[in-house]
Computed example of a mutant assay.
Amino acid sequence: MTVTIALAGDTMLGRGVARQLADFGPRSLFAPELKPVIDQADLFLLNLECCVSARGHRAPLPGKAFFFRAPPSAADALALLGVDAVTLANNHALDYGPQALADTRSLLADAGIEAVGAGPDLARARAPLVLTAGGLRIGLLGIADHPEEYAAGPHTPGTAYADLHNGVPRWLTEAVRDLRQDTDVTLVTAHWGPNMATSPVRHVLRSAPALLDAGATLIVGHSAHVFQGFTRHVLFDLGDFIDDYATDGRLRNDLGLLFLLTLDGASLRRVDAFPLGLRYCHTRPATPREYAWIRHRLTTACASLGTSVTAEDGHLMARWD
């Protein structure tokens, strides 16, 4: 049985994006050319790097520079795009406190979008999500390796925090093993590593094999805000999908990728990566010049990991027979 999963990286719908949403509506955030690509997939998953709420107060974290909160209409904007599920395991889920996190989960659910990686207590933050597509049971686990201050407790809300700097914790390997027994595909979505890193850092490189050994079929990373290379089993970082961030002229965090993964049962057969241009609060297909930069960057990053990427009909592709 074959299933196609669409993946997008860091999706920040607060600040300037929230104003764009309010002034021009949800269709103004994404170019219409993206929808036919997404519609090829059986499931569309992304990292929602903000809370969705009209309530709450900024978390009292000294030294934290950025706090992201999207309006309730953001949930409808994601549904309109075709999002099926999001991970909330990241460093912005609790930016406006437990009330906003609760609103996020509720508003997403009302829009028909599932969420994983954060919850009202430890058990529900760590709880997996199982979706069915193409006749396959696909299990999702969402984790974040920062910040520890946002970690859920036995009776307090927060994220599924995993201190990967000191090795993959036992609870996580056990969770992966348990989920693998009940699903055809087990996907771990990890908010790991530092910002603006063009290649996976040491603790990420150590953690990925341990998660695969525990039974993960695929590992999908995000956090760096720039895309990294991938192997047959690990997409180390998806990069950004939409935001209002300042652009680094060298690292080009204003250029991204929308991924389509084609699986035959539990085996990943193909990755198609569609180049994107991220302008202020708007995401569209890359221009030819942007495409050339993205192609060079992704080809080089993947080659360092032993993956060969080729160009095909305006996008980039890796295939395993």
Rank of each mutant, 00 (worst) to 15 (best):
V3W: 07
D10P: 02
G14C: 02
V17I: 07
V17F: 01
Q20N: 12
Q20A: 10
A22I: 06
R27I: 01
L29R: 12
E33L: 04
K35D: 12
V37P: 15
Q40G: 04
F44N: 08
N47R: 00
L48W: 01
C51T: 15
S53M: 03
A54P: 01
P60V: 07
L61Y: 06
D76V: 05
G82N: 06
V86T: 07
L88M: 09
A89D: 01
A89I: 02
D95W: 00
A102I: 04
D110Q: 15
I113K: 02
G117P: 01
L131G: 08
L141Q: 10
D145P: 05
A152K: 05
A162C: 07
G167L: 06
V168D: 13
W171R: 12
Q181E: 14
V185K: 04
W192Y: 09
S199H: 14
S199A: 15
S207A: 15
L212C: 09
L212E: 14
H222P: 06
F227E: 00
Q228T: 02
F230P: 00
H233Q: 15
D237R: 00
R250I: 13
G256L: 04
D272S: 11
R279H: 09
E290Q: 15
I294A: 12
A301I: 03
A303T: 05
A303S: 11
A311C: 13
M317K: 14
W320R: 12
